[in-house]
């Protein structure tokens, strides 16, 4: 369980860092076409971040339930 949480957390951080890198590349690009492509790609990371964020949240709740269980 803990391993899954760690792996999801790493993935989540990876998607967030990829998004910020793409936004940075977009900011440094002068070509409008290329800039738009970077921004589109950065937007494409949002659903992955949301999905992994929800999964991580559910896992944390489950972990909390398991650890707080009297048995």
């Amino acid at each position: 369980m803990l391993l899954v949480i760690i792996m999801n957390l790493i993935s989540l951080i990876a998607f967030i860092s990829k998004r910020s890198k793409l936004l940075q590349l977009a900011a440094n690009t002068e070509n409008t076409e290329e800039k738009n492509a970077f921004l589109r790609s950065a937007d494409g990371q949002i659903w992955k971040i949301v999905l992994f964020g929800i999964a991580l949240f559910i896992e944390l709740i489950l972990l909390l339930m398991i650890t707080s269980s009297p048995h």
């Binding site: 790493i10 951080i13 990876a14 998607f15 860092s17 990829k18 890198k21 793409l22 590349l25």
Partner: peptide
């Protein structure tokens, strides 16, 4: 690759 899906 400048950015990858496996940034870690």
């Amino acid at each position: 690759w400048v950015t990858t899906n496996t940034d870690i």
